[in-house]
Design a binder for these strands. Sequence first.
DNA 1: TCTTGAATATATCGGATTGGAATAACATTT
DNA 2: AAATGTTATTCCAATCCGATATATTCAAGA
Lengths: 197, 197
Amino acid sequence: MNVQSMCLAVISMGETSGYEIKKLLEGPLQHLFDASFGSIYPALGRLTEEGHVTCTEQSQSGKPDKKVYALTSAGRVALLNSLSPMPGADRVRSEFLSTMLFAHLLTPGQVGEMIDHRLEIYRGLLQALEAGVLLNATTDFGDPAATEFVSGYGATMIRASLAYIEDNRHLLESAALLSDDDGRNRNAPELRAVQSK
Amino acid sequence: MNVQSMCLAVISMGETSGYEIKKLLEGPLQHLFDASFGSIYPALGRLTEEGHVTCTEQSQSGKPDKKVYALTSAGRVALLNSLSPMPGADRVRSEFLSTMLFAHLLTPGQVGEMIDHRLEIYRGLLQALEAGVLLNATTDFGDPAATEFVSGYGATMIRASLAYIEDNRHLLESAALLSDDDGRNRNAPELRAVQSK
DNA sequence: TCTTGAATATATCGGATTGGAATAACATTT
DNA sequence: AAATGTTATTCCAATCCGATATATTCAAGA
């Protein structure tokens, strides 16, 4: 499941443009897939070359022209082939958790800010999901039950994250505190200087 | 937080090799960060060039030689600088959820197999986390409280995933069933032919 | 009015990353 | 002895990211 397949799948729910696909991926489909403009536009070009989608330029009132892509029957075949193999493992890159694993190298203030920031983001995300953002974005063309499953999955994960972080943040804050007081970094005086930059 | 920073962070917990970093990322740190050999080895080369780590070749009995990397004091400064900025949003690419959003294009058998496969993987992962794999892998040099937080976070997420999938898989299976029976694909007879490939 | 900023929309480029293949040394199994 | 598996590194083309550039429209404000 690369960017090209994801674009094909999104287009299968209704004709759309590269810009709209990107907005979908950074909003409602955030916890499913992430891709940049620099990968989406070339992917749409390849899909067009291969005959899996057609491209028609549409002028809009009040906005720049956009290129609208629509699925072809060959594209529908390619989509099914891309959905059929057993899904591989999730690929995750969490800067938050990676940083928290080294909370003992940061100050309690830094760690606290990072946690508060993360909680705020998750609360906003949860509100959006509970307001049915994903449902509204996909039920017109996708399947309502499948959309409900995916939407509920995201909401469940975020609720579990929020609860866990709130209940266990003391572990991180104590780790950061200790590094200030117990002399773990005493042999590396340059560390504190860097932090105050 | 790119591959280079992650390598630096892992090396800060104790001198190690590229191969061992990879094994850590596909095991205990699976839900934190993912990187391939093709990015790890060049990253270690750059870190060495920049003087953030030192590299010494070690011969082993019964195994090929390995290059062991150790943190320098300049590397410790670079590590802190890479941990200090506010962590960005998690980057997730879930083939499973992306595929399930289109469950209505697959057969009930395919969807059921994919769900069962996912449940098995999560059960194995949970067992490993509960057995303290992450703890054992990192507590020697990292901070025990921070490690406990991250390890518990992963276990909590997996438990929530397992429960949600078990409770709601019927949504996906009904979506797949409907696509077979209600004529959604009646106008695209080539679909079923492809599925039987 | 002018212009600054924000949103929409696409394109492009260098550098980072992926996924796979190639290489090689040793171990274990057949 | 041969085949297979594990450890360990290297290389490469295809892909992808992050940033920047370009252009249009609209709203706010100096």
